[in-house]
Nucleic acid binder design. Structure first.
Lengths: 357, 357
DNA sequence: TGCGATTTTGAGAGCGCTCTCACAATCATA
DNA sequence: TATGATTGTGAGAGCGCTCTCAAAATCGCA
């Protein structure tokens, strides 16, 4: 296959319903062999201009489309990529992270003329069914696994064992031999907390993400690193594990309150929102009594009361890079695993106190 | 194919990486013919118990998985469903509607052993590529189109012309010959507005959805119907078209303010949130000065200030029903189009004023 | 034990495409 | 014009499975 942009993507849709045509039919009507039609269809060179045109005309008139299954069988390429969103992802599926990720992935697949197959694994049984389907040949050329959660390691291992090209989105727990793309969570959290330190905050708490996830772990590391570098001494009372939900942030903040923090870094915006709700209910003013920094830059972060200072991560971009890495792996064979780390950006709004007069 | 729950979904994953096996290989090792292995693999009856066991053993040992492309080619069934989220959907992709819809769809596909292929169409070019890919044989057994937007009618028409089994999610503009499943938007809006009337509100405004969408249109109809039935006379100054975004709701509310509404029905929660923000900035108290009802019941609706009264729609359930209808159509052939309408539920919280002492 | 009915098994013809290989046609060069 | 290199075209063997049809094995019952 020489050129991924195929003629039928340019061709106008045929209005009338056509009987199922085969290469053979086109060949007969154009007075050439099956091989020649195949060459035209696949944009191969070595077809004389007039023959090519004759074949294209017949194709145009008849509204012929090649059969996907037959091509896949003969060429051993399905032009389909799988995207697996595991159990952990399923639960927090209302997080705008996923739509954005999927948007980047779907768009990139489309650009490269790949079809995207989506697998949401909800439970153990799903996982069984899905791994069987994925490891089956002739369906997928490669797989993207959104992960970073502890429970997803098995699936990743299976794909490695099956020798299926794979790129993980999010840092996996064990990442020998696996390519992945992740945002730089450690640095992002480091920058967020450093920013709070520069505001003169003394008692900086954190509502971490789930510590079964590498994102949760890494963001906590960044928090600790920032405090450590500035000589703050560790206070366990200022650290609590959240679960990436609004309610989780709310309750986490409530239990943080007795330790009298004057700032909090939440590992997600929805948790930050929950934390602000708890603070508000406790009569604390944000940012005067409590500075808050979130993570994600979800849409409502800009319009919350007060607008939320947060970390913006390039989610779509992450998806794009993952697809590109996967396609590269498919086309050029297995290579040393690549670890792609995406930069983040601190978006300063009002909740951190930096904009006060 | 007698039974959709296939043996390989039950079978344990083979640890070692196996060479690509074919039916032929299994047949040879088990000392039977290809046909017999095929029968075992597909759970056909008419295979003696001992032979079946012998074959299953070999399959188990070798870790054989049938080739998807070969089956599709031979059986003319791909066991894959397409989900198309058109242009309009793409833009408002942060709406939690989509994740929930996809969850229902993906889960149901998995339950029925179908693979789900996702197509996000972002622009004209995408649409060309995607329609070509969809109408190609051998890739999809049927297609779900999330629609209800004016611009999506072309795609639906193409699929009808191509004779591909299809179920539309959301009421299409022209729905002759197309099956669809939609929530009862008219009634939902009717109930929401009737609820406001019962609270004694006199000047009830609406921030409608995009009127290029049937959802926007139908919700506005419900609003008008409720007012009409109670003898309220139409005041154009109380009606404004929104765009389903927070900012849209905010500006819409601002332009509604001069007309002095004492209640507003917003066609989506995010718009309701925007409206409340505008009201707050204008010094209006919700619900005392302005009662607000939204639509969707997104997660933050429960924790907004004040908590938002809204319409809960069975989004996942809608996806489930759509998949089931599509599979039915695939298995039992084209039938008279079905129109499935889902009920909604009014969730009363504080923003409508019903819970005041 | 024999004969028809039933069940189990195998042979083989596709499904619609790709791709190698050989042959035919064209070209450049001497 | 002869010769080899190059380009254009066709024949045909798969790819791995399904499914029909017929043969073989088994069964029921007289």
């Amino acid at each position: 296959m020489q050129n991924h942009e195929m003629w039928w993507e340019r061709c106008q849709f045929q209005e009338q319903m056509v009987p199922d045509l085969t290469l053979e039919d086109i060949a007969r009507q154009a007075g050439v062999s099956r091989s020649t039609v195949s060459r035209v269809v696949n944009n191969f060179p070595n077809v004389s201009a007039d023959v090519r045109q004759r074949v294209l005309d017949v194709i145009q008139q008849t509204g012929y489309h090649p059969n996907a299954a037959a091509r896949t069988l003969a060429s051993q390429r399905s032009w389909t990529l799988g995207l697996v969103l595991p159990q952990s992802a399923h639960q927090i599926f209302t997080d705008p992270y996923y739509p954005h990720l999927m948007k980047g992935i779907a768009q990139t697949c489309n650009d490269h003329n790949f079809t995207l197959a989506l697998f949401l694994v909800g439970n153990e049984e799903d996982e069984r069914k899905i791994s069987a389907r994925i490891t089956r040949k002739g369906l997928l050329d490669g797989v993207l696994v959104q992960s970073g959660h502890h429970g997803d390691q098995q699936l990743i291992g299976r794909l490695v064992d099956a020798g299926i090209p794979q790129v993980v989105i999010g840092r996996p727990f064990r990442y020998d031999n696996v390519s992945y793309v992740d945002v730089d969570n450690v640095n992002a959290a480091f920058n967020a907390v450093t920013h709070l330190i520069r505001q003169g905050r003394q008692r900086i708490a954190t509502i971490s993400g789930l510590l079964q996830s590498t994102a949760g772990l890494d963001r906590k590391s960044g928090y600790l690193k920032a405090l450590g570098e500035r000589g703050y001494k560790l206070d366990e009372a200022l650290i609590i594990e959240g679960d990436f939900t609004e309610a989780g942030g709310y309750y986490a903040m409530q239990s943080l309150l007795p330790a009298h923090p004057d700032a909090v870094f939440a590992a997600s915006d929805v948790m930050a929102l929950g934390a602000m709700r708890a603070a508000r209910e406790a009569g604390l003013s944000v940012p005067d009594d409590l500075a808050v920094v979130g993570f994600d830059d979800i849409p409502i972060a800009a319009t919350s009361e007060p607008p939320l200072t947060t970390i913006r991560q390039p989610v779509s971009q992450t998806g794009i890079r993952a697809v590109e890495a996967l396609i590269d792996q498919i086309e050029n064979g297995i290579q040393p695993p690549r670890h792609i780390i995406m930069d983040t950006q601190l978006v300063i709004r009002d909740s951190c106190g930096a904009n006060r007069k």
